[in-house]
Amino acid sequence: MVTVFPFVWLVATSLRASGTIFAFPPVLIPRPATAANFVGVWTTMPFGRFFFNTLYITGVGIGLTLLTSALAGYPLARMRFPGRDLIFYAIVGSLMLPQHVGLILNFVTLMRLHLIDTYAAVYLPGVASIFGIFLLRQAYLVIPQEIEDAARIDGAGEMRLWGQVMLPLVVPALATLAIVEFTGYWNAFLWPLIVLKSPDRYPLAVGLLYLSGLFATNTRYIAAGAVLMTVPVIILFLFLQRYFLRGIMLGAVK
């Protein structure tokens, strides 16, 4: 009740044809219900642009995260080489490091790389995911040695062994990782707020707040925008609940 009710109210507000959001008594079943606000938010505001930006950042971000994790987890799990344990403990241990100053230093770094106000500035600092590396290492670890041996007897090189034998076996772990990372990239707010300046590159979270300042009087549009931003995440969550919860529990173990 306490958690769902505000969402119901939000959806109801987004469907209302007129009036301020502060109507009494509160309107829960808008009559007449209208989709005009949803149309309005797409046509009169650069909402479609924000939507595309979010999709792009989320897509590229997740893709690169999966790639780096799938790469890095492999040697940590299945190869012996000098420095392996040191690297592994350094990676996991960096979770303990306080990251508070990261915001400032990463801004300076991206400035030196001339990446401020680019999409890359938004996703790059988050691409190497410690959780992802850890998760993938666990997944590679449980692959039976016989499978590897058989592939080697067939004459598979290191790259083929990884790409054609190992990678397909860790797809479930990659799926979990993708879902866990999805909400992170989709909802990212603070960091894009810092590194982006052009409204035409804003993702939804930053864009929505920007619009709510610009069109302060038309809160029904903003409510419609908020609903549009939330719906994909909720749909994904309802269908893939198990993965989400597994993600948290695994995260909790780290």
């Binding site: 801004f107 400035m111 001339h114 401020i116 106000d117 810092i194 590194v195 300046k197 300042g213």
Partner: peptide, 15 residues
């Protein structure tokens, strides 16, 4: 509300 701050951050960011 945001213009001063955005301007400074953009100058700092080299953009």
């Amino acid at each position: 509300q945001a213009v001063d701050q955005k301007l400074l951050a953009s100058i700092a960011g080299g953009v």
